[in-house]
């Protein structure tokens, strides 16, 4: 349905998106993952025809939309990362404005406004001014404004950044409803792995402007099928201890987290005893050790050497 071919964008000689190839089939929910500055927003700006690519193409049903953006604009709903609403107007008035720019007939406009307000759960607060809303409520209206014209494809750029858990859950439920019940194709960008895991059939992982991995959750998990994740809680450690653990042959990666040290290790029986010996050698006691199958977060860590929130 929608694909990018060798899509690239440079600003003042600096390449921020580099040969990105991705595709969306009708009814799919696709996640675009990456840390801040990975190039996600620039990629979706090019897909939505807001930015002209330096190289490459964006195709809708096989036809380039770079020179004819009107085609994609008709079928696209974009939820920007910023709250792109008139703060001094009410939610209802904002939706009237966005309905009008899509030329919705007057008879249908009122019905559509109430429908999208129902979807985002703010029907009873529609007459209040946007500036009086909480951050989460503003984000929900931000989504509602993109749904008024029944778009076939919805692009959501980090719609849950900086909001309360209740609004976040509501937004995630809204995305599920759109995709699973209404059959809307969704391109969802985030740096929250758990959101993408929960919502998307497939995902693309971006870093430094490039797609570094893609596939279903299971396909991406297989990247680390020969590895395990060990969460190690010690009664105290320093750089020398970390260096000691890192020097063990089977240890591929060590990262400090709030729960303790997170290790990605090659699956083999002797790694645990090697870790125990190393800690004893440094006079450090192990309080807890937990071995688990690598998550997608671990896959990202493995591929980029950093976490999504870095």
């Amino acid at each position: 349905m929608l694909e990018t071919v060798e899509l690239s964008k440079s600003f003042k000689g600096k390449t921020v998106v580099d040969n990105v190839n991705l595709y969306l089939e009708r009814g799919e929910s696709i996640g675009l993952l990456g840390p801040n500055g990975a190039g996600k927003s620039t990629t979706i700006s090019m897909i939505s025809s807001l930015l002209v690519p330096t190289n490459g193409d964006v195709r809708l049903h096989g036809k380039s939309i770079v020179k004819n953006p009107q085609e994609i604009r008709k079928v696209l709903g974009v939820v920007p990362q910023d709250i792109a609403l008139y703060e001094e107007l009410s939610a209802y008035e904002n939706l009237v404005f966005f309905g009008r720019i899509y030329s919705l007939p007057k008879s249908m406009l009122e019905h559509k406004i109430q429908e999208v307000l129902e979807i985002v759960g703010l029907r009873d607060r529609q007459k209040e001014l946007i500036k009086t809303y909480s951050g989460g409520m503003k984000r929900r209206i931000n989504i509602a404004a993109a749904l008024l014209h029944d778009p076939q494809i919805v692009i959501m750029d980090e719609p849950t950044v900086g909001i309360d858990p209740q609004s976040r859950n509501h937004i995630l439920e809204t995305v599920k409803l759109l995709n699973r019940e209404k059959g809307t194709t969704v391109l969802y960008t985030s740096h929250y792995m758990e959101e993408v895991e929960q919502l998307c059939n497939r995902m693309y992982i971006m870093d430094h402007g490039k797609v570094i991995a893609s596939g279903t959750k299971e396909e991406l998990g297989r990247i680390l099928s020969s590895e395990d994740t060990i969460l190690l809680q010690l009664d105290g450690y320093n750089e020398v201890v970390i260096a000691g653990i890192r020097s063990i042959d089977s240890v591929r990666h060590v990262e400090e987290t709030v729960q303790g040290l997170k290790l990605i290790v090659t699956k083999q029986s002797r790694v645990l005893s090697a870790i125990v010996q190393c800690t004893e050698r440094h006079g450090v006691q192990i309080n807890n050790m937990h071995v688990q199958t690598p998550s997608l977060e671990d896959v990202f860590l493995h591929l980029t050497g950093r976490t999504l929130r870095d």
Binding site: S48, S49, L50, Q70, R73, K74, L76, V78, P80, Q81, D82, I83, A84, L85, Y86, E87, F98, I101, Y102, S103, A145
Partner: peptide, 13 residues
């Protein structure tokens, strides 16, 4: 600055 301009550009307007 608020992003409304870009949002409207993505519409038929």
């Amino acid at each position: 600055v608020s992003g409304i301009w870009n949002r409207v550009i993505l519409s038929p307007v």
